[in-house]
Amino acid sequence: MITSTQARPRAYPATAPLPSLLTTGLSRGRLEVTTFFREREAVVFIFALPAVLLLLLGSIFNSEHVSVPGVTTGQLYAAGMIAGGIMATSFQYLGISVASERDQGMLKRLYGTPLPPAAYFIGKIIQVFVCLIAEVALLMIVGVAFYHLHLPATPGKWWTLVWVCLLGGTACALLGLAASSLARSSRSASPVITLPFLVLEFISGIFVPFNSVPRGLQDVAAVFPLKWMAQGLRSVFLPPQAAALEPAHSFETGRVALVLAVWIAAGLVLCIRTFRWQQRR
């Protein structure tokens, strides 16, 4: 067994080039996606939970009346829960998983290899968007099957769906990376990340229709991205007259894009300033 360590002739030239950013980034991405779908906690609490909640909330409140004709509570919940699912697969999963990678020394181990740091982040981006697209598809299927959710009717609405996923997912992913540094250990990561996420879901129109949220809390929610993602998605999935339910009586899609872009910029700055490869002890 040991004799096999004798340097056997290999095809490598003495000055073989370092693997490229693209190769290593894609390899990280494949590894991250595999890991996500093998983790029972991730599949149950991140991936499946929004669909389960949609089924529960949708059926409990389905009989509630919506003041605008042609709009059902189920549709409101479905559109909102898609925003919640985007934030779960980006903010919540990244926040928890990166905190535990840091705490358990995985990030330190990577830092000690010639892996380009950017490849690690490319891997995370791939993982987030693969999971996010699967999540949105799952919730759309549940919505269409049970809650009269209409698929986007025009290319314009599809385009809105795409950019809300892209901007919202990016903003939440960056905030998740930044928030991961708040957790002091793997075990504290889950509560530290999940608590603010749950609060946001309550006040941003995910668990409770936004027009039933008290005015003061609506204003708090308006500071964060989730409310705007949900609003953008209502513009995609609900009929035009549902705009009357919005605080501004309009879906304000321009403002949605603007707020999300600002959060991406802020998240990027936060990440660059706070990201650490080693746990502080």
């Binding site: 290999r10 490598y12 073989a16 080039p17 370092l18 693997p19 190769t23 290593t24 390899s27 590894l31 595999t34 890991t35 093998r38 983790e39 358990q104 020394g105 995985m106 330190k108 181990r109 000690g112 290899t113 010639p114 892996l115």
Partner: peptide, 28 residues
Amino acid sequence: GIVLQLATAGPELTVREMVRHFAGYYPR
């Protein structure tokens, strides 16, 4: 090459997946 005093590898991956993946970081 570094073997840290304290470190864990990704628990969801197999030994072979892990070693192959890390091999991909190096030129030779």
